[in-house]
Every structure is written in structure tokens, then in C-alpha cells.
Design a protein around this nucleic acid. Structure first.
Length: 224
DNA sequence: GTGTGATCATCG
DNA sequence: CGATGATCACAC
């Protein structure tokens, strides 16, 4: 199988999405000559990278949409037998400094979630990686209510960080979107605003969509 | 270290 | 057993 070129249109992308629906990860990996690990213990991003390759996403770790030309972001979504998301969904890095004047409208979260291609993968842990089944991907854009929820969580938590309370942030905050560590390990540190406006060192963090939120997106698409 | 792709693993 | 905190690989 030759390398997949970037899709020229949303229609072309969605045609490819339909073409891989129902395939197992093993089948797709074989088509694409992807080396398949036994499990994801040491290659947690493997599924996402395989799907990217199959759909013609712009490779690499650049901070741009996966399908840059058509402005679409790809998110694989591991789901249970019941169709419920099994994991939270990583969105983007949380800015911890230079927050003055930063608005929701200009935020990385709003940009990242503006146009998402969700691709559910039946990924119960008891299912061997190669036997996990690719579902029917679909396009999503947050409606007014969803955006309001996201915006509220973003503003509340960014406000805490901007006022020097980054250490008060935990995964318990946020109704639909939380902040959790996003680092190589606990020794990785980065700058953040401290209690007196001084720069302090803290763990890098990321925004994650909570399971209930992505579950509601699935329900909206496929029916409760 | 930062940002891409995420899931692992432990704790309540 | 679900959710939070921790972690893995790779490019640069």
C-alpha cells in the first residue's frame, strides 16, 4: 500500500474513514506495514499514529491540525463494549505563564476543538491490540451549549493559574474539561506563575475532556 | 523542555 | 472499578 496523501476535502477524508470502519487494528497495521506492539504499555500513541497514517494526516509533531488543509483535528476515542469512552481525551497543553490578555476565543482549546473527527475504537483492555475494531468516525463541532461548558471550565481554571494558584489545580476541577499532568515524568518541570507573581517550577499540565462529555458527543451522534 | 500521539496504574 | 495522577515514545 502506497503512502496516503492528505485528503483534499472533507468528503474525501470521510470516505477514507468509512473505508477503514470495521477493520481491526491488526488488519489496518498490516495494510500500512505498521509494526504492531503486543500492547500499548510503551507505545501509548500507537493507535493514533496508525490512524493518522491511514487517513493521510500530516505527519509529525507540529502544533497544527492533523488535516491542516481542511482544518480538521483527528481524535481516536477508545470505547467499551457499551460504547462508553474508556479514557479522557487529551486536548492541548495548558499555558502556565504569560496569561495576560489570553481569552477563550484565542485559546488553543477552542482552536483544537473547532472541528474534530472522532474515531471510536472498541478498545476494552481484554481485547488484544490487533483485534480491536475501528468504528465509524464522524465530524463534530461544539454547539453553543457545549462551547459554553468548555469556555466556563477553561476560564475558571486559567484564572486560577493566572492568579498564581496552579498548585490548587487538580483533576477534580472542571465540569467537562479538567487539567492533569502532561509530562514525561514527575521530574519534568516548567515555569508557572507563583503566589506572589514570581515564577515557580511546576509539572507541565494538559487539558483533557472528561468521559461524560465525550460520551454525550457519542450519544448525540449515535443516539443514547 | 515542548508538543505530538495517548494510555497506564494506583488509589479511594 | 472509575477517576486522578503518572507515564511512554518520538521529533526537534
Amino acid at each position: 500500500m502506497p503512502p496516503v496523501t492528505p485528503p483534499r476535502s472533507v468528503g474525501e477524508l470521510m470516505q477514507r474513514v468509512e473505508n477503514i470502519a470495521g477493520l481491526t487494528l491488526g488488519e489496518l497495521a498490516q495494510q500500512r506495514s505498521f509494526k504492531t506492539p503486543q500492547d500499548l504499555l510503551k507505545e501509548k500513541g500507537w493507535v493514533g499514529q496508525l490512524i493518522e497514517a491511514a487517513l493521510g494526516a500530516t505527519a509529525g509533531s507540529k502544533p497544527v491540525p492533523d488535516f491542516e488543509h481542511i482544518g480538521v483535528e483527528l481524535k481516536t476515542l477508545p470505547i467499551s463494549y457499551q460504547g462508553k469512552p474508556l479514557e479522557t481525551t487529551y486536548v492541548s497543553v495548558v499555558p502556565l505563564t504569560q496569561l495576560t490578555g489570553l481569552t477563550w476565543e484565542a485559546s488553543s482549546v477552542k482552536k483544537k476543538l473547532a472541528h474534530v473527527l472522532w474515531l471510536p475504537i472498541l478498545a476494552e483492555r481484554e481485547i488484544p491490540l490487533i483485534d480491536r475494531v475501528i468504528g465509524h468516525g464522524f465530524l463534530w463541532q461544539p454547539d453553543a451549549h457545549q462551547e459554553q461548558l468548555l469556555r466556563r471550565d477553561w476560564e475558571e481554571q486559567i484564572e486560577l493559574i493566572a492568579t498564581g494558584h496552579v498548585e490548587q489545580i487538580s483533576g477534580h476541577l472542571g465540569e467537562v474539561m479538567q487539567i492533569r499532568p502532561k509530562a514525561a515524568n514527575a521530574k519534568a518541570l516548567t515555569d508557572a506563575i507563583g503566589p506572589n507573581g514570581k515564577i515557580v517550577q511546576t509539572l507541565p499540565r494538559g487539558f483533557y475532556l472528561k468521559i461524560n462529555f465525550t460520551q454525550s458527543i457519542l450519544a448525540q451522534e449515535f443516539g443514547a
